[in-house]
């Protein structure tokens, strides 16, 4: 419980560092997206029982400071248009069906990213009568972004990792297409 006084960098310097980091991350990401898709990356966010802070950090990615769209990342309204699902929250019992249906509506190849401690492992809520204890109890998860909530840069970093994974997935799929037809199953 007890914590030493943490001294932070001077706030202005700190923000400066973060902003530079953001530019680098974003450009890197946008290059990758261009290579894989030849278009922008489409993301659908699904709240499976978060405390709402994870949502706000994802929303913050669209504000004028982060302005994610300039890197070719776009939040879509329907899972049918999405390449990636960003899932927050420990998966509440009452959202289980909605989460499954959203996943099923997303076209292959798709990625699932667990955003925040709750989505990664159940976090503070663990497994309980109304909390299933993390997204990977229900869906196959490709990338885990820890944090409570993860700050916007961390979410970008997670997306970058996800692009690598997606590349692998597509390569594997093309390979199997050549040899034995479409082997992409729904889990």
């Amino acid at each position: 419980m007890d914590q030493e006084m943490i001294e932070f960098q001077k706030p202005e310097e700190n923000q400066e560092v973060l902003r530079t980091h953001l530019e680098e991350l974003g450009n890197h990401l946008s290059e990758k997206i261009g290579k894989i898709f030849g278009r922008s990356l489409h993301i659908r966010e699904v709240d499976s029982g978060s405390c709402n802070a994870c949502e706000w950090e994802i929303t913050a990615l669209s504000n004028p400071v982060y302005d994610l769209e300039r890197f070719g990342i776009y939040f879509v309204a329907s899972p049918r248009h999405a390449d990636v699902l960003l899932v927050t929250g420990p998966v509440s019992r009452n959202l289980y069906t909605a989460l499954l249906k959203t996943y099923e509506a997303t076209p292959e190849p798709k990625l699932v990213i667990a955003v925040g401690a709750c989505a990664c492992s159940g976090g503070l809520f663990q497994k309980g009568y109304a909390s299933l204890g993390g997204v990977d109890k229900v869906l196959p998860v490709d990338v885990y972004i820890p944090g409570c909530p993860p700050r916007p840069q961390a979410i970008l970093q997670g997306l970058l990792l996800a692009m690598d994974k997606l590349e692998q997935k597509i390569r594997k799929r093309n390979f199997s297409d050549l040899h034995e037809g479409d082997t992409c199953h729904r889990p």
Partner: peptide, 19 residues
């Protein structure tokens, strides 16, 4: 509503007060 019900009040009963 109540899609996000996670059992917060019940959970509080098994945690120490610091948590």
């Amino acid at each position: 509503l109540f899609y996000k019900h996670k059992g917060t009040e019940k959970l509080a009963e098994i945690l120490p007060f610091t948590k």
